[in-house]
Amino acid sequence: MYRPPKYRKDDKEFIFSFIEENPFASFILKGERLLATHIPVLVEGNSENFRLYSHIANHNEQKTFLKDGAEALIIFHGPHAYVSSSWYKEKDISTWDYTAVHVNARIRLQTAEELETSLETMVERFERKQESPLYYKDIPELMLKEHLPLITGFWLEPFKIEGIAKLHQAYPKYDIEAVTKKLDDSGSYRDRELGAAIRKENNTD
């Protein structure tokens, strides 16, 4: 990943929290060509030592290349938005602010038991905020028996991790305030998230 020094984010707490907060990722494998799938990828462990896990459908083209020891690239995306130079006090060049984490990892296929445990954890993670959650244990047994053979679960053991946060570092305070106000007023939840990240990065909260 191209990372100018001022945008690099290698702090372990930043990386771990970012993955937890932005689990919907691009999962990339090299087959006969580069292949990508967009899936939730969850993290297990802590900021000092963690692994990732997910699953894909067996009819996915990536399944052929999903093998123990194969390398995968997982890209976690944070808030991002176009920033118009018309928002600045002086004439400048427009840009795009964003945050992301790239993880290069080795694949290890899950056992049937590991797959069920990880699915249970994943369902609980996303259902617990629902008004009437439907947990894994609530899914009819016959339905599970029919669907489990159709997917393959896997662990991802990271060996290279890179974070980036391009958030208007080194810009004048008045430009940062103008940019974040425009983002806040856009009506987009993701724009507001980015505005909050810019303020936090530049200590203008």
Rank of each mutant, 00 (worst) to 15 (best):
E13L: 13
N104T: 11
R106N: 14
D184H: 04
A105M: 04
A165M: 06
I15E: 00
L115K: 03
R192T: 10
N60S: 15
Y171N: 05
R199A: 08
A197C: 08
N104F: 12
P5Y: 15
I75S: 05
A170E: 13
F50D: 03
H55A: 05
E48Q: 12
I93D: 04
I56F: 05
A36W: 02
P158H: 10
K63S: 12
R125W: 07
S86I: 01
E13A: 13
L183K: 00
H77K: 10
G195Y: 01
W96E: 01
A57V: 09
V103H: 02
A70P: 00
K91F: 06
E61Y: 09
P4Y: 12
L52N: 02
K30N: 13
F126W: 14
E131K: 05
E193V: 02
H55S: 09
P23I: 13
S94R: 06
T204N: 11
E113V: 09
Y7F: 13
R33S: 15
T95G: 04
T37D: 07
P149W: 04
E116T: 11
Q130R: 10
Y7G: 00
V123L: 06
N203A: 15
P133T: 03
G195D: 02
A36N: 08
N22E: 04
L142D: 15
N202K: 06
L109V: 08
S188N: 12
P40M: 15
G31K: 08
G195T: 02
G163L: 02
D97I: 00
K6M: 13
F24K: 14
R190L: 05
K89V: 07
E48Y: 09
A36K: 10
D185P: 04
Y174I: 06
V179E: 00
S47A: 14
E193D: 15
H55I: 06
R51A: 03
F159E: 10
Y174K: 08
P4Q: 11
Y2F: 14
D138W: 07
L73T: 05
S86L: 02
Y7P: 02
L142G: 12
F14L: 08
D175V: 02
V123C: 07
Q130C: 14
E146Q: 14
A197S: 11
Y82N: 09
H55F: 04
D11W: 14
S84I: 07
T111M: 14
E193I: 03
H80C: 06
R128L: 09
A25Y: 00
G187I: 01
L35D: 05
L109F: 10
Y136N: 09
M1S: 15
T64V: 11
L66P: 01
K200V: 08
T99K: 05
